[in-house]
């Protein structure tokens, strides 16, 4: 068992446990903190995969910005301990678990058959696998994917305006 395997098992276990903790804790704050743990573990996995840029963004954007937003909202709304599941939760719990297991089974089945895909298999077998650098990503992003890249800026702008409108309207009504 080499270092990568050990690290994979470590990060994988942490992220899975974190994920289960997210859906298990009663208090949203704990859930949020568990999610941060998961995100960090995933950043580790990204590093393991040689995707250093993505790992960095994961930490900065997800674990940093987005989760801060979550925590901020939770504290703003001052939500206390909540029951894990409501009326429907109870009714649906069995069905949800069964569906989840089926879903996971299917996912795993796909994952294991992914390498039967000739394109993936051939790429791996030729050994062209080279750790991609931030330089590669940047080149793709500003050449081939320039238009989608610009569109994301529009999405962010729309989100910005949307948030302002949502909040501002509430303010006016209160006045």
């Amino acid at each position: 068992m080499n270092a990568e395997q050990i690290l994979f098992i470590l990060f994988g276990a942490v992220s899975l446990i974190g994920a289960i903790a997210v859906i298990s804790f009663r208090h949203p704050i704990y859930s949020a903190l568990s999610l941060i743990v998961t995100f960090f573990a995933q950043a580790g996995l990204f590093v393991l995969l040689g995707a250093h840029f993505v790992a960095a963004v994961q930490v900065i954007v997800y674990a940093g910005a987005i989760m801060v937003l979550f925590l901020f909202v939770i504290m703003l709304l001052n939500l206390g301990t909540l029951s894990v599941q409501g009326a429907i939760g109870r009714k649906l719990k069995g069905l949800a678990i069964i569906l989840g297991i089926l879903f996971a089974a299917e996912g795993i089945y796909i994952a294991m058959n992914a390498l039967n895909d000739t394109a993936v298999a051939s790429a791996e077998s030729t050994g062209a696998t080279i750790t991609t650098t931030t330089y590669d990503i940047g080149e793709l992003l500003f050449s081939k994917y320039l238009l989608p890249f610009e569109v994301t800026s529009l999405i962010l702008l729309a989100a910005l305006i949307g948030v302002i409108v949502l909040v501002k309207r509430e303010g006016q009504e209160e006045n």
């Binding site: 069905l95 569906l99 879903f103 089945y109």
Partner: peptide, 22 residues
Amino acid sequence: GLVQVYIVSMVLGIVLFLAYYL
């Protein structure tokens, strides 16, 4: 009107569709 009921139906659909596909 309960979002989760809708989501359950959706997931059920996905599961069945994937099963059929696979």
